[in-house]
Design a protein around this nucleic acid. Structure first.
Lengths: 217, 217
DNA sequence: ATATAAAATTAGTCTTAACTAATTTTATAA
DNA sequence: TTATAAAATTAGTTAAGACTAATTTTATAT
């Protein structure tokens, strides 16, 4: 149906549209795919011809209903495979993204739905991101970060915003994963550092940036 | 490591070398990949440069030790994914080949071994073909066909030689799968047709060609 | 042994999706 | 408002891997 490149562009445009309300420019897409902007301009033309996106210099790139539907299905496949890799094959949090990046392009019509069933219809992937349903509906993403909480609040780690391996490895070191219990004990006024207690253990201090990348429940 | 095309050529050459002792010619490879012989000549040059194969006009194409090792690993991945698709996702016999054809190219270093473990280290795939071990050793393939048996012999279906979907669908219709019990009752002298009893049920007559494509245990 | 058919090879083309370099358009700041 | 910087675009190139058409080599049959 789609080439590998086309799918990667659709997914990238979808992700950019979810991440913020900024207009989606060729440069932004180029950065997210680590491509040259000139290449992006070519692909914008191709995807526009195929009626998967619309491009207006003023408004930037937008997915059409068809493009959106298919982008969502690619993301669905990606996130389902992440669950599989972690839960069934025993990979760690920071290893699964790149493999899912390949698996998401397997094109069989019923594969995603069968995998979904096999995994027990999970709602969120191991990074806490919502897994779109077969009908295209997307469960509500988490939005409150650790840094948003009031002093003294207890919470459960639900997701992470940053999925870089340096961040994920840091989390591993701190023994923080999805479901970990965290209590916010103090905010340092000077630089907004956060003093937290992880699973009721000894106190740890983390940066504001860190706190803003942890989504909680 | 390898491109998709390179992997497909390696696998195709390996399969041809297993299927018979005929010399492996550009034309044979072209047929097996449904490619043009001219394209095959190009790729033979490329794989020769990379020291994955050797090509001698007299002797045909041969895998080098390195080429063989990697071809076997690709086949290993293919067959493991076939087991997964059938056993875990509930696909039918005739649906899994094409999907495994895509999955086999996923390149993570530990994926095959983890999948192998997850599946319980199966020795044969759903078509009865041996699944190469992580060290490259290949379990002994089945070699006796239904047509080789003496009248009155009981056997168990272990594998199929023909994996075309028309054959697999015919098997499905006859209710024959891996493990099915078959008793050879009679050989029709006229055209070598075989009269068999499937799982001790009513008698069925099948062609010689059919019998030669069923491997038994 | 030689004509003919089949197989292998070469030469050149095409498509996809990247790239660089040059140019044009748009945005920003003095 | 105009100079400058940034972004977008165009034009042309490249690499992989397929193709066709033409040619050469090898095999087969009379």
């Amino acid at each position: 149906m789609y080439t590998l490149s086309e799918e990667n562009y659709l997914k990238s445009i979808y992700r950019l549209s979810q991440q913020s309300n900024f207009k989606i420019t060729p440069t932004a897409i180029a950065e997210s795919l680590k491509n040259n902007p000139a290449s992006v301009v070519d692909m914008i033309r191709k995807l526009t011809d195929k009626q998967l996106i619309e491009y207006d210099k003023k408004k930037g790139v937008k997915l059409t209903p068809v493009g959106l539907k298919d982008a969502v299905l690619i993301v669905r496949r990606h996130r389902l495979w992440e669950v599989f890799l972690l839960e069934k094959l025993g990979y760690h949090w920071d290893e699964i993204h790149d493999i899912a990046e390949e698996l998401e392009h397997i094109s069989d019509a019923t594969l995603a739905d069968r995998l979904d069933k096999f995994l027990g219809f999970p709602e969120y992937d191991p990074h806490g991101d919502p897994i779109p349903k077969a009908n295209g509906k997307v469960p509500k993403p988490y939005s409150v970060t650790l840094a948003d909480l009031k002093i003294g609040t207890n919470c459960r780690v639900a997701a992470v915003k940053d999925t870089s391996s340096s961040f994920l490895q840091y989390l591993q070191k701190l023994d923080i994963g999805i479901g970990t219990n965290i209590k916010l004990l103090e905010k340092i006024t000077y630089d907004n550092s956060l003093v937290i207690s992880i699973n009721d253990k000894e106190n740890t201090t983390v940066s504001q940036k860190f706190g803003e990348n942890i989504l909680v429940d």
